[in-house]
Write a protein that binds this DNA or RNA. Structure first.
Length: 581
RNA sequence: GCGCCCGUAGCUCAGGGGAUAGAGCACCGGUUUCCUAAACCGGGUGUCGGAGGUUCGAAUCCUCCCGGGCGCGCCA
């Protein structure tokens, strides 16, 4: 089912090629929702630039486009205004028909990709033997939303959680576990991974003999020594349980099956270096093997390189990233690679992508995309830390979010109690936390502010959840089963109804935009507009007491469609809706 | 030094070639015999960091500058 914008686009493309010549059949009509109500519902801005291009007065060209087009069935008014704007007012019957189609569709008008991509989304990527902290929040939340959106549009999404499960730090951890006797227990239980890490690190720094043993453990581990490997695996498993618990609470779709850590690529690394060497891409620099992707310069204006093998023969993250990308393209069949990491890694990914092209591992048709995001800052505009200067743990953040949400709803709706209250607190608390992260342009740093994210006014999750709750409340009160509402009954009459209807019809194009730009905040802005539109409708248009029955049915159907879009949109963001709050 | 990113209302943020730059918060004032007032309505905010340039048209694109953040070979 083509959505409104697609239909308009098609009509305009036709009209333009008729009015301006077939040579301009490909010209973008530049359709936008109108800036102001008096300019209609949509406006097409192509005549101005196109007129200039082909040497015709823009207004005249606009008139010609209007004359050449077919509008009667979809527009009640098409007029040229100002220097050459074409303002469209959609026909109510067209709006209603589109709404009916959308409402009758289980997918609420979201198209399924005709040629699905295989997309690998790399996100979250916490470190084994460390607690997940605030630094993992954005990648986890943004990555999950992106994966959900692509999945919903019918693409084959492969989540990859590239956990840090390898490296020299495991030597000290293993040595510490042995030294303290924890290793001797039947089942390794690490109450606090962070504490373990710190304790081991302290020993490492304070005791030279311990450090020497730890370094030996690294060698043992790499050599496959049974004791070292067993303890390493225990640490990994323990960490996975911790990750899993956080993901479940956060409502993030990552599971154990999505974890493919750095260690997975270990035995591929020598092959990677060999292959690069064979292609003549590597240079020797003080004993290290270095690849110089074209177009990168260092301080002195000399080529900037990526070290793929250290002087001592060890490998680095660049090597692992190359191996992982190659694996994703060749083994997983990916034609779109998405990396959700903080913006500081911009250059690293630019170089990585260039290297992948030069090595021939990423053919031209494979899209390589880094999805960078800014930092989480405190109100003081400094990176968020605890009072003692440590990273804020994610489980602590979640606890606080839920607790604060619980207090707020207890205050606003004292009748809620028990499981209802607890469930609502979870949904609102975690929803607020996630939405705050998703609703701004992801490239910017964002200021972490509990009061703001949990506010019931403004562009927040609770506001959206409340709009949904108010709709559901109507159906409860009227004892009406939404499944029995007739999608064809919608007849938007009042301005508030019409505004809401037009907004709802934009859902498919907005979701499509997110899939293209990988910017979830566009969906947030849209949902916020849906919610404000709904609240306005709610104030102006009684539903249950609408008077005549067909109007009542129409409004019920509009309510249900709005509820479904709010719920579906929030679900794409990984945020739950609830029945009461 | 080189590179990347950011700079929009007092605060938090949308808007990324189109008409008079928008929300929320905060501040003031309204609205409830009526489906959740957890809402809605009204009131006013701006050298869009600055200067040039491109364009019929610039917050948006280009150049330079200022301010802030981050990154620049054996960590990830």
């Amino acid at each position: 089912m083509p959505h409104v914008l697609e239909i308009l686009n098609e009509r305009f493309t036709e009209a333009i090629s008729r009015a301006a010549g077939a040579a301009h059949a490909g010209a973008d009509p530049l359709l936008r929702p109108s800036a102001q109500a008096k300019f209609g519902d949509y406006q097409a801005n192509a005549a101005m630039s196109l007129g200039k291009q082909i040497g015709r007065p823009p207004r005249e060209l606009a008139e010609a486009i209007v004359q050449s087009g077919r509008w009667e069935d979809i527009c009640q008014k098409v007029e040229v205004a100002g220097p050459g704007f074409i303002n469209l007012t959609l026909r109510d019957s067209f709006i209603n028909a589109q709404l009916a189609q959308m409402a009758a569709d289980d997918g609420i008008g979201l198209p399924r990709a005709k040629r699905p991509w295989t997309v690998v989304v790399d996100y979250s990527s916490p470190n084994v033997a460390k607690q997940m902290h605030i630094g993992h929040l954005r990648s986890t939340i943004i990555g999950d939303a992106i994966a959900r959106v692509l999945e919903r549009l019918g693409h084959r999404v492969i989540r990859q959680n590239h956990v840090g499960d390898w490296g020299t730090q495991f030597g000290m951890l293993i040595e510490y576990l042995i030294e303290t006797g924890a290793a001797a227990e039947d089942e390794l239980k690490v109450a606090d991974l962070e504490a373990l890490y710190r304790a081991a690190q302290q020993r490492y720094e304070a005791d030279e003999a311990f450090a020497a043993h730890a370094r030996q453990r690294v060698v043992d581990l790499q050599a496959g020594d049974i004791t070292a490997v067993t303890l390493w695996r225990a640490l990994v498993d323990e960490s996975k349980r911790h990750f899993e618990a956080v993901y479940r609470r956060l409502g993030v779709k990552l599971t154990d099956a999505d974890i493919r850590g750095e260690s997975f690529y270990n035995d591929q690394l020598p092959g990677i270096v060999n292959a690069l060497e064979k292609r003549g891409l590597l240079h020797d620099s003080e004993g290290a093997k270095v690849l110089y992707p074209e177009g990168f310069k260092n301080t002195e204006g000399e080529p900037l390189g990526m070290i793929v093998r250290k002087r001592d023969g060890g490998y680095l993250y660049a090597t692992t990233d190359l191996a992982a990308a190659k694996y994703r393209i060749e083994q997983l069949g990916a034609d779109r690679l998405i990396y959700v990491t903080d913006s500081r890694q911009n250059q690293h990914f630019a170089m990585l992508f260039q290297a992948l092209r030069e090595a021939g591992w990423a053919p031209e048709h494979v899209r390589l995309e880094h999805v960078p995001f800014g930092m989480v800052l405190g109100k003081d505009r400094r990176p968020l830390k605890t009072r003692s200067g440590r990273n804020v743990r994610l489980d602590e953040v979640l606890d606080e979010a839920v607790e604060r949400a619980g207090q707020i709803i207890a205050e606003k709706n004292p009748e809620m109690a028990g499981d209802w209250w607890r469930d609502a607190a979870e949904a609102i608390g975690t929803g607020a936390l996630k939405y705050a992260d998703l609703s701004g342009q992801r490239i910017k740093d964002y200021i972490f502010d509990w009061d703001q994210m949990l506010a019931f006014d403004g562009n927040t999750a609770p506001y959206l959840q409340n709009a949904y709750v108010r709709i559901r409340s109507i159906f409860r009160k009227g004892e009406i089963d939404p499944a029995l509402v007739d999608p064809g009954a919608i007849a938007a009459e009042e301005p508030a109804e019409r505004d809401l209807a037009l907004k709802l019809l934009q859902f498919p194009e907005v979701v499509g935009g997110v899939a293209e730009t990988l910017e979830p905040h566009r969906l947030c802005s849209f949902l916020y507009e849906v919610a404000t539109g709904y609240h306005r409708f709610y104030e102006n248009c009684p539903v249950l007491t609408a008077g005549d029955e067909s109007r009542r049915q129409s409004r019920l159907a509009l309510c249900d469609l709005a509820a479904r879009i709010l719920a579906a949109g929030l679900d794409l963001l990984g945020i739950r809706t609830i029945e009461q709050m």
